[in-house]
Amino acid sequence: MAEEYINHWRIEKFDPAWNPTGMLEVSSFSRRYPRYIETYLQACWQSVKSALKEYGVSCKLSVVEGTMTGSTTKKTRDPYIIVKARDLLRLLSRSVPAPQAIKILKDDMSYDIINIRKMVRKKV
């Protein structure tokens, strides 16, 4: 008897039909950013905003408070997208260029922040 091969590690792309009614509650978060990247964030914010809008997430840049805020809307279908949006804003606050950071919204992408200072050893 031949067994069917099942790939347990395959990542399936989210289908909005899995959640036709959307989110029941609004989830939101804020992320502070350093002042030295404020000008860059203002320049690229429209592309960040449109990328998140495709997934039903709204975002706001507050230059007075120095924060970026993201929240779900009635159009949000993917429940995990709020975590990905948080990761996007975290990458932006760490000076990752917006076109690279926006890639984190795709299902098959992830990131890891490496603290280089711990890897540098002092020569004797």
Rank of each mutant, 00 (worst) to 15 (best):
residue 92 L to F: 06
residue 90 R to S: 10
residue 76 T to R: 03
residue 80 Y to P: 01
residue 88 L to C: 01
residue 76 T to N: 06
residue 79 P to N: 14
residue 85 A to C: 10
residue 65 E to F: 13
residue 74 K to P: 04
residue 73 T to A: 09
residue 69 T to G: 09
residue 66 G to M: 08
residue 87 D to T: 05
residue 72 T to P: 12
residue 92 L to Q: 02
residue 67 T to S: 08
residue 78 D to W: 03
residue 98 A to N: 01
residue 92 L to K: 03
residue 79 P to T: 09
residue 97 P to Y: 05
residue 86 R to C: 03
residue 96 V to L: 09
residue 75 K to C: 00
residue 78 D to T: 06
residue 92 L to T: 00
residue 98 A to M: 02
residue 83 V to K: 10
residue 81 I to A: 13
residue 60 K to D: 02
residue 81 I to T: 11
residue 87 D to A: 10
residue 91 L to R: 02
residue 66 G to N: 11
residue 83 V to E: 14
residue 76 T to E: 08
residue 83 V to G: 09
residue 87 D to C: 12
residue 83 V to H: 13
residue 92 L to E: 04
residue 79 P to F: 13
residue 82 I to P: 05
residue 66 G to D: 07
residue 93 S to N: 07
residue 65 E to L: 14
residue 77 R to V: 08
residue 80 Y to W: 12
residue 95 S to Q: 03
residue 93 S to Q: 07
residue 81 I to L: 13
residue 86 R to Y: 12
residue 95 S to N: 10
residue 66 G to Y: 10
residue 90 R to G: 07
residue 78 D to M: 05
residue 91 L to H: 08
residue 78 D to N: 12
residue 67 T to I: 15
residue 86 R to D: 07
residue 84 K to V: 05
residue 86 R to E: 15
residue 71 S to D: 12
residue 87 D to M: 08
residue 68 M to V: 07
residue 73 T to I: 03
residue 84 K to I: 06
residue 78 D to G: 01
residue 64 V to Y: 08
residue 68 M to Q: 02
residue 69 T to V: 15
residue 60 K to Y: 13
residue 70 G to L: 08
residue 96 V to F: 05
residue 83 V to I: 13
residue 66 G to E: 04
residue 62 S to R: 00
residue 80 Y to N: 14
residue 83 V to M: 04
residue 66 G to C: 12
residue 98 A to F: 02
residue 89 L to P: 00
residue 85 A to M: 10
residue 69 T to F: 08
residue 76 T to C: 09
residue 74 K to M: 07
residue 75 K to M: 11
residue 69 T to H: 15
residue 95 S to W: 00
residue 96 V to E: 02
residue 90 R to N: 12
residue 81 I to W: 06
residue 60 K to N: 10
residue 65 E to H: 11
residue 78 D to S: 05
residue 84 K to F: 10
residue 63 V to P: 00
residue 79 P to M: 14
residue 60 K to A: 04
residue 75 K to L: 13
residue 65 E to S: 15
residue 62 S to N: 15
residue 67 T to A: 01
residue 64 V to E: 14
residue 82 I to N: 11
residue 88 L to Y: 03
residue 64 V to I: 13
residue 74 K to R: 13
residue 98 A to L: 04
residue 61 L to K: 00
residue 74 K to A: 03
residue 78 D to Y: 09
residue 71 S to K: 15
residue 85 A to S: 12
residue 92 L to N: 01
residue 61 L to P: 04
residue 61 L to Q: 03
residue 90 R to I: 05
residue 65 E to G: 00
residue 67 T to K: 12
residue 61 L to M: 02
residue 73 T to P: 06
